[in-house]
Every structure is written in structure tokens, then in C-alpha cells.
Write a protein that binds this DNA or RNA. Structure first.
Lengths: 160, 160
DNA sequence: GCTTGGGCAGCAGAAAATGCCAAAAATCAA
DNA sequence: TTGATTTTTGGCATTTTCTGCTGCCCAAGC
């Protein structure tokens, strides 16, 4: 995917679609000050070039009984390399892991895990996380409240 | 919003739309084994009841020059209450804060911040985070790699 | 019998895709 | 610098596909 140059209009389009992915092209065009066809061309280009990766529906976690967020710091045994790939592959197979980052600092990985309740988390720990080979240490921190959760990246840092 | 009972079909619908928010109702219907009209009724009900909160386009962070994820642990001075609200309000005003959680354990808050580079993060720290009143301690951890990032909640925990 | 939920059919409105033309911007050359 | 060519991008109009929506009826479960 070639690095696309994004001008002011592209960023406006992205901002709009990040906010409402179903906004009809007509409205997008109007809001960015373009006529529908060049606007549609831009949107399609943004999709095909991978700038827009996908369109999704967001679901309320509470409504599907997944109100608990747990952040898990994982340290691996010091034999890196193969362990790394194995761990990441194992993590990718766990549906309750919403996010996973390879980190600098004390722990190797930071995960965000969603579960219905503490009991479920305990089960998740015992039956899945601790069974991944190479895991040396696990530290769990629970979120009392999700103050903010956004999927829309801030785009004001390039122009406004 | 009354707590909606979600049956197997509802969960299937949610799973599909979490994956592809633009899937036409016809295809959703077919995949869940329903005819279009009752399927559409369900989708609309899920939207109106708030189970589906919104539809969004996801953007590649690298493509908009925001490749750096920083996790920030923030501790507040011990006078809670008013500080809490003030801090949360301040955080909500910072566009680079993608996520913010009130935590148990050592730190009070955990933030995920996206920035173009380390210099930008330094500016973010100096000009914004440290200026929020009541902040006692800040600890930053940098992500070397985003191993996983999903917006689709796992729904298999209720039935499959 | 009543309530809930699914199916069928048809409608209508909109939205997206095309093709063509015009204008502006960038490039290059003299 | 200037001018011309090339490339890019916007605009208009049309067409065609679809998608969502409505109403009604029927079946199943309570």
C-alpha cells in the first residue's frame, strides 16, 4: 500500500466517516464542499489504499454482558524470540483479548480483556492465559469505569 | 434503555455487523437464516435499544501518521471527588486520548494516547497532561507494536 | 384466543457507479 | 520567467442497482 498523500479534504472525509460510517456519500460530499462524484472517488481511493481499513458496528459492552475490562501485564521468560511468536499467536486465538501491545518497560505485553464478571476472568486466567508456554508473570488491573473509548483517530494534528 | 433479551439470532446479527457494519440486510438475513423483513426488524430494534451504539469507519493509524501508542498511568492527589470530575473532564477534551479507564490498584487512571512521534508525546505531556490540576504522578509506557486491536466484542460466551 | 415473531410481495426512494467534459495544478522546457 | 503540455481533480447528468421499508397474512407458543 503506497503512502497516500492526504489533503485537507481527505482528512475531512475521514473525520466524518470515523464519526458516522454510514453517512451517505451525498452528505459527505456536501459537508466537505465537493460534489458527489469526486467525493465518492476519494472515499473509494481511501478504502482501496487501506487508509480506511473497515466499516464496523460498535456494540454496547453492557448490553451483551461484558461490562468488565481488565488490563493484564504479561512478562515472558527470558528466552524471547520463539516465545514471542508463540505468545502472540496464542493471544490472537483468545476472543476475550480486545487489545494486545508489545511494550517497553517492566512488562512485555499489555492486554485489554473483556469479561462478564470476575469469575469469568478467573477462568480465563486459569484455563487460557497461564497455560500459554513462556509466560513468567501476570499482573491484572481492573477498570472500575470506562471514562472514554473512541475509535476515531484525532486528525487535527496535520491541519485544521 | 431496557435490558433486551438477546437470543441466538440477535447475537449472530451482532457478530456479523461487528465484523462488517455495511453488510446489507439481505445478506445478514440470509446468513442468520431469516428472511429480510424480520431480520431488519431485529437490526432496527438493536439500534434503537442501544445495543448497537453506532456505525463507524476504522482508519489505519499509520496512514494518518499516528503510529505511536502510549499508555499513561496517572495518579491523582489524594483529595479525590472533585478532582475526579475535573480530571475526567480535562481528559475528555484531549483528542489524542483514545481510551481512559478509572483503575483499581496503584494508579488511578490508565490512558491510551496516540501520537505521531515521541516529540509530540513530550509536547502532549508538558502542555496538556501535566497541566491538569490534581495530577500527582504520571508514568508512561510505550507500545512497540500493536499485536491486536479489535472493536468486535466476543459474543460466544452466551451460546454458540 | 391472544401474543409474538416470521414470511411474502411489492413499492419506492436513494445511493452508488459510469462516462464525459471542463478546469486547475504541476511539470518541464525553452 | 513564461508558456505549453500533461496530469490531476472536480462537476454534471444519467443509469441501474439495491436497499430499506410497509402492510398483510400465517404459524407457533403461551
Amino acid at each position: 500500500m503506497p503512502k497516500i498523500k492526504l489533503d485537507r479534504i481527505d482528512r475531512k472525509i475521514l473525520a466524518l466517516l470515523q464519526q458516522d460510517g454510514r453517512m451517505p456519500n451525498n452528505e459527505v460530499a456536501e459537508r466537505v464542499g465537493l460534489s458527489p462524484s469526486p467525493c465518492l472517488r476519494r472515499v473509494k481511493a481511501l478504502e482501496e489504499s487501506g487508509v480506511i481499513t473497515r466499516h464496523v458496528a460498535l456494540v454496547d459492552p453492557a448490553a451483551v454482558d461484558l461490562p468488565v475490562n481488565v488490563f493484564v501485564s504479561v512478562s515472558l521468560e527470558r528466552q524471547v524470540e520463539e516465545r514471542i511468536d508463540a505468545f502472540e499467536a496464542a493471544v490472537m486465538a483468545l476472543p476475550e483479548v480486545m487489545e494486545c501491545y508489545l511494550m517497553t518497560g517492566d512488562a512485555d505485553y499489555l492486554l485489554r480483556v473483556v469479561v462478564p464478571d470476575l469469575a469469568s476472568y478467573e477462568r480465563f486466567l486459569k484455563e487460557h492465559l497461564t497455560r500459554i508456554s513462556g509466560v513468567a508473570n501476570i499482573r491484572s488491573s481492573f477498570a472500575l469505569k470506562q471514562v472514554r473509548y473512541r475509535t476515531a483517530l484525532p486528525l487535527g494534528h496535520l491541519v485544521e
